[in-house]
Write a protein that binds this DNA or RNA. Structure first.
Length: 219
DNA sequence: ACATTAATTGTGT
DNA sequence: ACACAATTAATGT
């Protein structure tokens, strides 16, 4: 098979990062039809109600996935990271329905987007692709059950702790630039309540506080 | 360097 | 939940 230099490059890059996920054929397919995209931080990628016509494959960076309720309040669902794809998107695409979620880049993101028309035939043709999709569904479902469990059964304080942990993990930094109001939005709570919890966590020595920032010490 | 203003955070009811 | 006080950061003079 003949490749353009750009495709050669792409194959090299994807094989390096994804060889344990996909076999050769799938990687070639991805390079043929996939398009590489760079997204700056804090960019809205998909909004609620948008028609989605591509499937993202994250190379680096983090994407925040959330829903919106009738009152327009947001709730953080989960993050997408390296090697992830969006299970919700797969659903939307194959059923030709509109997005039920909003996706915003948390950091700068590098990704490959694949037009949806290829997904069906790949499912049939390539076992490693099939496994990838199913695996992605499975792990996301488990995460969601976890998150639901957390909301229903755990106190807001525990949710804040978990939130901070996640944030530290995805930014690879113990110093977070975030306001109490931001956290309140993500957790579907109010600023005042978050402030009180933050103060408590600081007193207990878990974090240290500053205006617009906090430092993770331990949990 | 100082004053003004806006944004964020703290606290009592 | 609301209101307001206190604190801090940003901006202009």
């Amino acid at each position: 098979m003949i490749h353009t230099p750009a495709q050669e490059n792409c194959i090299k890059e994807i094989s390096e990062q994804f060889h344990y996920l996909f076999d050769e054929e799938v990687i070639e397919e991805i390079c043929k039809v996939g398009e590489r995209k760079s997204i700056p931080a804090d960019e809205m990628i998909i909004d609620v109600g948008d028609r989605v016509n591509f499937l993202p494959l994250i190379l680096s960076g983090t994407i925040k996935i959330m829903t919106e309720d009738k009152q327009g309040d947001e709730l953080l669902l989960y993050y997408l990271e390296f090697g992830d794809t969006c299970a919700v998107t797969i659903n939307c695409c194959t059923r030709q329905s509109k997005s039920s979620i909003r996706a915003i880049s948390e950091t700068a993101v590098e990704m490959i987007v694949i037009p949806i028309e290829y997904l069906d035939s790949w499912m049939a043709k390539h076992q490693s692709w099939r496994n990838f999709i199913l695996e992605s569904y499975n792990s996301r479902l488990n995460e969601m059950i976890d998150a639901l469990d957390n909301i229903v059964f755990n106190s807001l304080e525990d949710r804040v702790k978990k939130y901070i942990k996640e944030k530290v993990y995805i930014t690879r930094s113990e110093d977070l630039d975030i306001t109490h109001a931001d956290i309140a939005n993500d957790l579907h709570s109010s600023r005042v309540v978050i402030s009180r919890i933050m103060k408590k966590l600081e007193k207990e020595g878990y974090i240290s506080l500053g205006r617009g920032k906090l430092k993770y010490l331990r949990l």
